[in-house]
Design a protein around this nucleic acid. Structure first.
Length: 476
RNA sequence: CGGGGCGUAGCGCAGUCCGGUUAGCGCACCUGCCUUGGGAGCAGGGGGUCGGAGGUUCAAAUCCUCUCGCCCCGACCA
């Protein structure tokens, strides 16, 4: 058997690339740093989109679309923002064969152009809150790219909201973070730690940034979503004021938040194995595949008739693949669908027809079950539900097992260098200590977790007093 | 910017040193037979501006000059 996937313990990053390419999720494009998302990968993105979009609508948000190109002067209006993004921007200087009077930035994010519009739309407190989301592509020039995890162009959603008060903006920021957490856990089956970013890690132009952090199978951290409280920074930069009930003018409070196609990378690295992709059932557009098995023509007819009946029954509820391609043998088909992560496989051969059985194989456990034909729809539903839940639990156990409390800097260095994982350690809050850790260990503060009890301790670097542990890890 | 490597079928490569018929192999693809409970086998077949341009020669994938692109290491940057 020709191995198509490099095992994880041989070369983790080749394993990841193999999963993406062999699972036909994406492919390298002729443009350096840009990838093509293939139908299998785009199907995952569509599942992310449809579920998150519903959740956004349920929390009162609406969709809109803003231009891809942003005038240079807009980009430069918010000082921190321009400093943070300018180096990674692509800029259009020629249009219609002529040098442009003002350069146009290809959006790395849309705060500036959106706030230029909000200035036109927001006059009174009655116009607030304004809760807009957009699904779009953005571009950030990258030197070293990796499929889904870091490409120059990527797809995302960006929410941009405007509020009358700081508290309302803060509430919105946290509400969305919670939507992200729920989505990651309930749909992607990835447990995440919600928390706050340090000053060094926060979004350029934000007051503060919240995030959800997930652990991948190589124990590195991956940021799975961010939500920013922008305060009045953009309102001031774009002069967006509203008149309150008492006729008084004040600047609007803003938030922005986003998740991207990077989540697909997270999904892959959280669950997949050496056979290929493993998709949580709720993320699979096609959760079931039926593979018929036969030898003689007589067997073929009986098996296909039987399988056809199973197919019709399951099709009522699921988008089922009926793989009756004659040119491939069953073993080949098994491997192919395993590579592509189809959650449940149903094998039907002559013996099954005879006994009125089918063989059901779950992708996550690879466990084979011989089940009766009667009530197959319920059985499949049960397995898919169980699989969804068990995948989350498995990932949670893995993360917890690889999360350690470390109180001594030398131990910290040793552990981060050998086992890795999430290290919960005390930090005084000083940026210098944070920078020192990064310089010496390559680990960064992933977040200051919400659900961490207060506890007095000493900063792992300088020994000064600290009230809380933070999460350190090497990150993607 | 410096050093090294590589461009030959969709993919992976051999052939280049030492020029010589219709440029070859594996995988993939097409046709047929045979097979089908973990990536079968046999036979036949399609597919090439040998990265590009120029030169040397009776003759160039092969030698020479120029050029384009990609990868790795270093430098720069952070």
């Amino acid at each position: 058997m020709a191995e198509k996937v490099t095992p994880r313990d041989v070369d983790y990053s080749r394993w990841y690339t193999d999963i993406v390419l062999q699972g036909k999720l994406a492919d390298y494009s002729p443009v350096k740093g840009a990838m093509v998302i293939r139908p299998n990968g785009y199907a995952i993105w569509e599942m992310i989109q449809s579920n998150l979009d519903r959740m956004f609508k349920e929390t009162g948000h609406v969709n809109a679309y803003f231009p891809l190109l942003i005038p240079e002067s807009f980009m430069q209006k918010e000082a921190e923002h321009v400093e943070g993004f300018s180096p990674e921007c692509a800029v259009v200087t020629i249009g219609g064969g002529q040098e442009l009077e003002e350069k146009l930035y290809i959006r790395p994010t849309s705060e500036t152009i959106i706030w230029a519009m909000y200035k036109k739309w927001i006059m009174s407190y009655r116009d607030l809150p304004l809760l807009i989301n957009q699904w779009a592509n953005v571009m950030r020039w990258e030197m070293r790219t990796r499929l889904f995890l870091r490409t120059s162009e990527f797809l995302w959603q960006e929410g941009h909201t405007a509020h009358a008060t700081y508290d309302e903006a803060e509430e919105e920021t946290l509400k969305i973070l919670n939507v992200y957490k729920k989505f990651a856990e309930d749909y992607l089956a990835i447990p995440v730690i919600p928390g706050k970013k340090s000053e060094a890690e926060k979004f350029a132009g934000a007051l503060h940034t919240y995030c959800i952090e997930a652990m991948m199978q190589d124990k590195k951290a991956l940021q799975a979503g961010t939500s920013h409280n922008l305060g009045q920074n953009f309102a001031k930069a774009f002069d967006v004021q509203f008149q309150d009930k008492d006729g008084k003018l004040s600047y609007v409070y803003a938030t922005s938040w986003g998740v991207s196609t990077r989540l697909i990378g997270a999904l892959i690295m959280a669950h997949s194995d050496d056979r290929g992709l493993v998709l949580p059932p709720k993320m699979a557009q096609r959760p079931v595949v039926i593979v018929p098995i036969y030898r003689s023509d007589d067997e073929k007819k009986a098996v296909l008739d039987f399988a056809e009946g199973v197919y019709r029954e399951l099709k009522e509820k699921y988008n089922v693949i009926f793989d009756d391609r004659p040119q491939y043998k069953p073993g080949y088909k098994f491997s192919e669908w395993e590579l592509q992560g189809i959650p449940v496989r149903i094998e039907i051969g002559p013996k099954d027809v005879e006994k009125n059985n089918v063989v059901l194989v779950r992708r996550d456990t690879m466990e084979k079950q011989f089940i009766t034909r009667v009530g197959i729809l319920d059985k499949v539903t049960n397995e898919l539900t169980a699989m969804q839940g068990e995948m989350l639990e498995r990932a949670r156990k893995f993360r917890d097992k690889n999360t350690l409390e470390i109180d001594e800097y030398n131990t910290f260095k040793t552990v981060i260098d050998s086992e890795g994982g999430f290290l919960k350690s005390h930090w005084c809050g000083d940026a210098g200590c944070e920078a020192k850790v990064q310089e010496e260990t390559k680990a960064t503060i992933r977040c200051i977790p919400f659900n961490e009890a207060d506890e007095t301790g000493k900063c792992i670097v300088c020994g000064k007093e600290s009230t809380k542990r933070v999460i350190f890890a090497k990150a993607y």
